[in-house]
Amino acid sequence: MKKVLSEWQSYSAMSEFLESYYWATEDDDLGSLLGSVTLWSNDGELFDQAISDDWHTFFVDVSDESHHTLFQSFQVVKQFVNEYLPDITVATPVSGNLTYAIRTICDMAEVQRNQDPIWKNWVAAVDWVTNPNVEPVNESPFLKTGQSLPNPKEKGFRQNQFPIAKVLPVPRPEIPMGPSLEKVDLTQSYYAFVKFLQHYYQVSDDSELGNFL
Results as ranks from 00 to 15, higher is better:
residue 150 P to H: 04
residue 119 W to I: 11
residue 49 Q to H: 11
residue 109 A to L: 14
residue 131 N to T: 07
residue 98 L to K: 00
residue 117 P to V: 11
residue 47 F to I: 04
residue 47 F to R: 11
residue 64 D to F: 14
residue 113 R to T: 04
residue 55 W to V: 04
residue 150 P to Q: 03
residue 130 T to G: 07
residue 73 S to L: 12
residue 113 R to Y: 06
residue 101 A to D: 00
residue 112 Q to V: 13
residue 54 D to Q: 11
residue 64 D to L: 14
residue 145 T to R: 15
residue 71 F to W: 08
residue 113 R to H: 05
residue 144 K to S: 08
residue 54 D to N: 13
residue 99 T to M: 14
residue 83 E to P: 02
residue 104 T to V: 08
residue 46 L to T: 04
residue 112 Q to C: 05
residue 80 F to D: 00
residue 139 E to D: 06
residue 156 G to Q: 03
residue 83 E to M: 10
residue 123 V to C: 15
residue 85 L to R: 00
residue 129 V to N: 02
residue 119 W to F: 14
residue 73 S to F: 10
residue 145 T to W: 12
residue 65 E to M: 12
residue 164 I to N: 02
residue 135 E to P: 03
residue 161 Q to L: 15
residue 47 F to M: 12
residue 159 Q to Y: 08
residue 138 N to T: 07
residue 83 E to T: 10
residue 98 L to N: 00
residue 61 D to C: 08
residue 58 F to W: 13
residue 80 F to G: 00
residue 164 I to D: 02
residue 104 T to L: 11
residue 145 T to I: 12
residue 138 N to L: 15
residue 88 I to L: 06
residue 131 N to K: 12
residue 82 N to K: 15
residue 76 V to C: 03
residue 121 N to G: 06
residue 48 D to C: 14
residue 123 V to N: 05
residue 110 E to S: 13
residue 58 F to P: 02
residue 58 F to L: 08
residue 118 I to M: 03
residue 123 V to R: 11
residue 71 F to G: 03
residue 154 E to Q: 15
residue 60 V to W: 06
residue 51 I to R: 10
residue 65 E to D: 06
residue 59 F to E: 01
residue 94 V to L: 02
residue 159 Q to C: 10
residue 45 E to D: 11
residue 143 L to A: 04
residue 133 N to A: 13
residue 134 V to H: 08
residue 57 T to E: 09
residue 66 S to M: 07
residue 104 T to F: 11
residue 47 F to C: 07
residue 58 F to C: 04
residue 63 S to K: 09
residue 147 Q to K: 08
residue 59 F to R: 04
residue 123 V to D: 04
residue 96 G to W: 02
residue 134 V to A: 05
residue 45 E to R: 14
residue 140 S to Y: 07
residue 43 D to N: 15
residue 153 K to H: 06
residue 80 F to P: 01
residue 146 G to Q: 03
residue 90 V to E: 02
residue 102 I to M: 05
residue 117 P to F: 13
residue 49 Q to P: 02
residue 162 F to A: 04
residue 155 K to S: 07
residue 103 R to L: 09
residue 68 H to K: 09
residue 129 V to S: 04
residue 140 S to Q: 05
residue 77 V to S: 01
residue 75 Q to C: 12
residue 80 F to S: 02
residue 152 P to Q: 01
residue 85 L to T: 00
residue 63 S to G: 03
residue 59 F to T: 03
residue 107 D to Y: 14
residue 128 W to N: 07
residue 98 L to T: 00
residue 122 W to C: 10
residue 107 D to T: 12
residue 155 K to N: 05
residue 78 K to T: 04
residue 53 D to I: 13
residue 56 H to F: 09
residue 102 I to P: 00
residue 145 T to F: 14
